[in-house]
């Protein structure tokens, strides 16, 4: 059943993105930012974790989860180190994702040449 809900929830998030593109004529950068902020706000309201429990990768793969994890890291560190933890903790949970993007990006750029 979780496959079904992963499909529905993940698909719905993508449909919203496509609507932002096609109907509201937003560019990819703005669309992406909106999703990150939306994920962060949903986590702030305590709604994103239940969504992941419900839909699995349908909620954890889309970029909205990046916003969710930014908030997660900030809150975690804030509990341990107070207000300074908000700043140091933002990339705590997401560091693997960001580092992977940089490392794989560099490797890809070294090996491959764009076909145009």
């Amino acid at each position: 059943m979780i496959f079904f809900w992963a499909f529905v929830v993940g698909g719905t998030i993508c449909v919203i993105g496509q609507i932002l593109f096609d109907v509201f004529k937003l560019n990819p950068g703005v669309t992406l930012t909106i999703f990150v902020i939306a994920g962060a706000i949903l986590d702030g309201l305590g709604l994103y974790d239940p969504l992941i429990d419900f839909a699995g990768a349908g909620a954890s793969v889309p970029i909205t989860n990046f916003g969710n994890q930014l908030v997660h890291g900030a809150m975690q560190e804030a509990e341990q180190h107070g207000i300074i933890g908000v700043v140091t903790g933002i990339f705590e949970v997401t560091s693997a994702g960001i580092s992977a993007a940089i490392i794989f990006g560099v490797i890809g750029a070294i090996i491959f040449k764009p076909k145009g």
Binding site: P28, K115, G116
Partner: peptide
């Protein structure tokens, strides 16, 4: 040049940005 123009005005082609059917293809 198609790829140079995409990079100049929109996104580098390897970024894979979507284009609507109204868009056009720059001649190389």
């Amino acid at each position: 040049h198609n790829a140079a123009t995409e990079k100049q005005f929109r996104y580098p082609t390897e970024y894979g940005g979507q284009k609507p059917p109204t868009a056009q293809w720059t001649v190389t």
